[in-house]
Simulated scan of single mutants.
Amino acid sequence: MKKFIAEVLGTFFLVFFGVGTAAITGAEFGILPIATAFGLSIVAAAYGIGAISGAHLNPAVSIGVLCAGRMSAGEFVQYVIAQVIGAILGAFVIYLIVSGKSDYSIATSGMGQNGYGPGYGGGYNLAAALIFEVVATFIFVTVILGVTDKGAPVGFAGLAIGLTLTAVHLVGINITGTSVNPARSIGPALFVGGQALSQLWVFILAPLVGGALAGIVNAAGLTRADA
């Protein structure tokens, strides 16, 4: 139960700060604050609840940990449920806040949702979105599995993970808004609806594939210091 609650809270924090920054200040200040908000939120969660649940906050991370042989299938299901709940709660709070602005329209302003194609970001197509999300998630989860390995330096995991997530967002915000996290995508999409919901499968499937590949490679010993 402690792990479940920690994952709910941690994912809530991630969505509140990351999606919140995209929804509230993204149009005004651009990519860097959004990327930084996501990175800092994961650093805070890693040091705040990492000792309880490992601070996955992301089904793609959990499936990577599962494929690396570090958690059971039952734990994986529990983590994913907690993460999706936390993301929905975080998106709900952001929705309540942005709805308080007199000229706000979710149809035109959105809510930090992920997407691709004409009218979204740089207009990148489906193939580009899939490639980016798989590769970026693979990199992100590979770093997580590496810095949480038994042979990794102690005390720096949260910082390394946060900086990697920031870098991933700097590359991908203009492509897909950067998901690399199905839960983070599910939360806003449920409130925005329309195209965000119809394209949601991309931001569930691609990160899970990337995370699973990272876990498989790690299990094979290719990214483990003790292999």
Rank of each mutant, 00 (worst) to 15 (best):
H56K: 09
Q83C: 07
L57H: 09
Q83D: 02
G74N: 12
V77S: 07
L89E: 03
A55Q: 05
V84G: 13
S72P: 04
I85N: 05
E75W: 01
V80F: 02
V80R: 01
G69D: 01
Y79T: 14
L66I: 07
G86S: 08
V77L: 08
M71P: 02
G54M: 06
V65H: 07
S62I: 00
G64K: 03
V80M: 11
I63Y: 13
A87D: 03
G86E: 00
F76I: 06
L66Y: 08
S53Y: 00
L89Y: 10
S72D: 00
V61F: 02
G74V: 01
I63Q: 07
M71F: 02
G50H: 13
L57Q: 12
E75V: 07
E75F: 05
A73C: 08
A60S: 14
S62N: 06
G86V: 11
V77A: 15
I52H: 12
R70H: 06
A68R: 00
N58L: 10
P59W: 08
I88G: 02
Q83V: 08
F76S: 12
G90P: 06
V80T: 13
I52K: 14
H56R: 04
Y79D: 08
L89H: 15
A87H: 06
G86L: 07
I81H: 11
P59M: 01
A87Y: 10
V84N: 08
I88R: 14
F76T: 07
A82L: 07
L66Q: 08
S62D: 02
I81N: 07
V80P: 05
I85P: 07
G86I: 09
I52P: 10
I85V: 15
V80W: 10
G86P: 10
G54A: 13
I88D: 00
V61R: 03
C67A: 15
S62T: 12
S62F: 00
S72F: 01
C67G: 06
S62L: 03
R70S: 12
G54L: 00
L89F: 15
G69M: 00
I81A: 15
G86T: 12
V61T: 09
V84W: 03
Y79W: 12
S53W: 04
A73K: 05
G86N: 02
S72I: 01
G50Y: 08
S72T: 15
L57D: 04
V80C: 15
V77M: 09
I63M: 12
A55H: 04
S53H: 06
A68N: 11
Y79Q: 10
C67S: 06
V84T: 12
S53R: 03
A55Y: 10
G86D: 00
S62W: 01
L66P: 03
G74M: 04
R70T: 10
G50K: 15
V65K: 07
V61P: 09
P59G: 14
I63L: 06
N58H: 13
E75N: 09
A87W: 04
Q83N: 08
N58F: 14
P59H: 13
G69E: 02
A55V: 06
